[in-house]
Amino acid sequence: MKSIGLKSAPPLKRLLWPSIILVALVTQIPFILTIYYSFLDWNLMRPDKGAKFVWFANFKAIFMGSEFYTVLGNTFILTACTLLLCLVFGLCLALLMNRDFLGKGLLRTIFVAPFFVMPAVAGIVWKTAILNPNFGITAYFAGVFGQDAVDWLGSYPLQTIIALVSWQWIPFFMLIILAGLQSVPKDAMEACMIDGASTFQRFIYVVIPHLLRYIEVAVLLGLLFIMQTFGEIYVTTSGGPGYASTNLPFYVYRVGFKGWDIGGASAIGVVIVIITLILLKYLFKFLRRTFRGELS
């Protein structure tokens, strides 16, 4: 594709600047400050002490404490298990929805709904109506089957949050995988049928390889978003009991907005951004491969 009249390019290029400036102002400048704050001993509850430059003391305190490793482990378990559940159930639902039947559009709409529900409400509805050990639906069914009701969020906080976050993200995976299933090349399938391949063989040798690219997109994006889970934890367990269901983003909130330890919270923020940047590198490598030159 040719570029359009170079003469008209310069004024239109300026259209870019407002977006770049605003986004940089809100995301980049504050991050530089986060790095700076992470070297300060600064607690808003102790204005008398002021802010003191302490080099890496905040990082040292974080890495020496045991909570950080609990939180890091939680973040890993939460993200990995949610991704796995999303992938398995997303694939199953996509396969179910990739058939022709009455009311397909309606069911698709129903399956997608949880994705649009705000995390705060998703957490509250699950905590009360579904999982409450006295009045929740699960308690009722436990009673019907003669079992004791389980206090899900108290006894299995992390597992319950995994289920809850999966419930919200499975539709995202379903939609992407469904888009993949619907774009399986017809000629390859026909060639396979002529060769006498069974449905199962066709699935393994044609559909799965084609789906891999879609699954890769879903997993990479899902990973980056699910790592940032916050609202669901805030309204259900507040990260407890203890640190049992605190992940990295919620840890920043606890240290920063409950403990008012600006330096400590900033240091954790820096650690999270470094982890994310490493993951982003893989996403970008993949995206650049996908678009290969058709971006500009």
Partner: peptide, 29 residues
């Protein structure tokens, strides 16, 4: 619409700001 040398880089810069966790900037904000 207008070919720019740095178009990919700008696009990837945009998306990286979307992917970076909000908690990384919440304190200074």
């Amino acid at each position: 619409m207008f070919r720019m040398k740095k178009a990919d880089d700008i696009l990837f810069w945009f998306i990286s700001t979307k992917m970076l966790p909000a908690v990384g900037v919440i304190i200074p904000v």
